[in-house]
Design a protein around this nucleic acid. Structure first.
Length: 213
DNA sequence: GATAGGATCGTCT
DNA sequence: GACGATCCTATCG
């Protein structure tokens, strides 16, 4: 990691902005996962914006439920959900409060703590695959629903936080359709990534599951 | 490299 | 009862 990297943590104000501002601004930031096993640090290279109650692709589109309730709360908190019966994905809630918007953390480059990440992601053949995809990222950082709703910008010894890091130049930020999102939410270019970065996950279009006969 | 199919269970209809 | 903000393995070229 760069020695000039800014290690001050992001504050509430960073997240208390419209999600389409926050999402691209998260690229290059450092997500820190702290636990008894020690820290893991990940430089964010790919994210997706979910614009809450007005976004057909968002979990919050059909209103508040037990699962998505933290999205309706204050910005600067984690939203962790369980999917496909096996995986967890990590989001950061954005402002304004009540809009229920969030950013899905889709991929990143592991710096500190790669050793632990390799153990959890034993099937990864290269380090660039340790967090190449949202469920892989959550696995590498040992994130599950125990971390749903944690405040990432205040409180002592918090398990998740985000440092300023080093955002890429504007012209290296790309955007396109969100991965795995179908229906009316499928064409918004609300996926953001760092151009050419080897840890960015491949785009996959939404595939509706077929009924067995 | 590309693609197809299976895994597996919480959530909402 | 259907399907998902996904990943892994096997197989084919």
């Amino acid at each position: 990691m760069n020695k000039g990297m800014d290690r001050t943590p992001l504050t509430r104000d960073f997240f208390d902005r419209p999600v389409l501002e926050v999402a691209p601004d998260l690229l290059g930031r450092i997500l820190v996962r702290s636990s008894d096993d020690g820290p893991i640090e990940l430089r964010l290279t790919e994210v997706e914006a979910y614009a809450g109650d007005v976004d057909p692709g968002s979990h919050a589109f059909r209103g508040r439920t037990a699962r998505n309730s933290v999205m309706f709360g204050p910005p600067g908190h984690s939203y962790v959900y369980f999917t496909y019966g096996m995986w967890h994905c990590l989001n950061l809630v954005c402002g304004p409060e009540g809009r229920a918007s969030g950013v899905l953390l889709r991929a990143g480059e592991i710096g500190v703590g790669a050793e632990m990440a390799r153990k959890r992601r034993f099937s990864a053949r290269h380090d660039r695959e340790l967090a190449k995809g949202p469920a892989r990222l959550a696995t590498a950082l040992d994130v599950d629903r125990a971390l749903n709703g944690v405040d990432v910008v205040s409180g002592p010894e918090r398990p998740l936080s985000v440092l300023h890091g080093e955002p890429p130049p504007r012209d290296q930020v790309r955007s396109g359709p969100r991965t795995g999102v179908g229906g009316d939410g499928s064409h918004q270019p609300w996926r953001f990534w760092i151009d050419g970065d080897p840890t960015v996950s491949p785009y996959r279009a939404h595939v509706p599951r077929r009924r067995a006969t």
